[in-house]
Design a binder for these strands. Structure first.
Lengths: 148, 148
DNA sequence: CGTATATCAGGTGCACTGAGATTT
DNA sequence: CAAATCTCAGTGGACCTGATATAC
């Protein structure tokens, strides 16, 4: 029984990226599920920690999460007590989302999961190679982020 | 309005991989949809072209597609006339899937889409850098393929 | 007025799970 | 018997669309 992948797939970067993303979701998704969190939660908490309070629309643009999913994820984060949501008095269309102390602690927990997941996912690569990979992909991602 | 992504995300390889995969699906998915195809179709046709006729279980293992999705995708490929499906006389549990001439032509069409998509997706990278990226990711994918 | 924001309802592609029927 | 194969029904997370109400 031959289970090799087709050689042309193994030479196609877009397929390799997709397969790596699958592994990534398996590893990180399991850890996040155990913490009753999600990738959306992590991205939102991270953005709030780095840039401070923001409106939902801004959070969506910063994290690449759809406006519609931002609503749902913030509902969950809010009922868990990780963020506060209040109307902006200067522009009553907006909600101002603020990270709570509990939210900061949750982010630190999730950070450890993410850290461990990198280790597992990129186990075959040296630190220098991981740096290479990160720089190459960052250029690709930034290139497409500008085209919108 | 600040729309920068959090710096820690841009330094997290698993997130970069995921974002690149999203762009990849956008670009290739659109082309495949126009050809009434899918990523599953491409992978299956490619595997058949490289290794010849195979059972559905073998196809699933080679392409990383779930046995359940192999059934559905082959239904579509079969009604489109791109593959033949017949019972293996030596083991009547198995179906032997064979690529037709039309399937080979369809694969060539899809190949051109995939080729063009690589160009668009990895536009900011030189040929040498794309080679680097491919080699790094191939090692990651093969590492996780062995662990099953 | 047009634009931006927040919300809700739904749709899709992809990976996956569980169960059943058949054959080895 | 156990194990493998094929099939079907359904789940779930992530991404995306369209429509609505409100405020600027």
């Amino acid at each position: 029984m031959d289970e090799r992948a087709p050689g042309r797939l193994l030479a196609t970067p877009s397929w390799l990226v997709g397969q790596t993303a699958v592994q990534s979701r398996r590893i990180i998704g399991a850890a996040f599920a155990a913490a009753e969190a999600s990738g959306y939660h992590y991205r939102l908490l991270l953005s709030l920690a780095e840039f401070g309070p923001a409106s939902q629309a801004t959070l969506g643009r910063r994290t690449g999460i759809d406006r519609s999913d931002v609503v749902a994820a913030l509902n969950e984060l809010s009922t868990a007590g990780y963020v506060d949501r209040e109307i902006d008095p200067d522009d009553r269309r907006r909600n101002i989302i603020t990270l709570t102390a509990a939210g900061r602690r949750q982010l630190e927990r999730l950070d450890r999961f993410v850290e461990a997941a990198q280790e597992e996912l990129f186990a075959p690569l040296s630190a220098a190679e991981r740096g290479q990979l990160t720089r190459l992909l960052a250029r690709v991602v930034e290139h497409h982020a500008q085209a919108d």
